[in-house]
Amino acid sequence: MPKNKGKGGKNRKRGKNEADDEKRELVFKEDGQEYAQVTRMVGNGRCEANCIDGTRRLCHIRGKMHKKVWIGAGDIILVGLRDYQDDKADVILKYMPNEARLLKSYGELPDHVRLNEGIGAALDDDDYVPADDFVDFEDEDIDKI
Rank of each mutant, 00 (worst) to 15 (best):
I145Q: 13
L93M: 00
G80R: 13
K68M: 14
G32L: 09
G9S: 06
V27C: 02
I77W: 03
G72D: 11
M41H: 01
A122R: 13
V113D: 02
A36P: 06
G63A: 01
D133R: 14
E30N: 11
D53H: 02
K16T: 02
D83G: 10
D126H: 15
I92E: 00
E48F: 07
E18I: 05
W70R: 03
E30W: 05
R62K: 15
D75T: 02
P2L: 13
K67E: 15
E30F: 02
L109P: 10
K29R: 07
H60A: 01
A49L: 06
L102M: 13
V91G: 05
L115Y: 07
V42R: 00
V27H: 08
M1C: 02
I142M: 09
S105C: 03
A73C: 14
K7T: 08
N4V: 13
D141C: 12
G107L: 05
R14I: 12
A89E: 02
H112C: 11
F134V: 08
D136N: 14
L93Y: 03
Y35S: 00
K23G: 04
K64P: 00
E138S: 13
A36V: 04
E140S: 10
E108F: 03
K23C: 09
A121H: 08
V135Y: 07
V38E: 08
V79L: 01
Q85R: 06
D87F: 03
V38H: 02
E25S: 14
K16A: 06
E48V: 06
V91N: 08
C51S: 10
P110Y: 02
L26S: 09
D139H: 10
R14L: 10
D90K: 09
L81V: 04
K29L: 08
D21E: 14
L93F: 01
R101D: 04
Y106L: 04
Y128F: 15
K10S: 10
F137A: 07
D53C: 12
E48T: 11
I77E: 00
H66Y: 15
M65G: 07
V135K: 11
A49H: 01
L81G: 04
L103D: 06
R114L: 11
G54F: 03
K67D: 14
D136F: 15
I77H: 01
L103C: 05
H60C: 00
C51A: 14
G80Y: 06
N11S: 12
K3E: 15
N50P: 08
D53L: 05
N50Q: 12
R56M: 05
L123Q: 02
D86S: 11
I119E: 10
L93G: 00
V79K: 00
H112K: 07
I142F: 06
H66E: 09
E138M: 14
L102I: 11
I52M: 06
K3G: 14
D111N: 09
Y95E: 10
V129P: 07
N17D: 15
S105Q: 03
A122Y: 07
F28M: 05
D75K: 02
F28I: 10
R101M: 02
C47S: 04
R24Y: 09
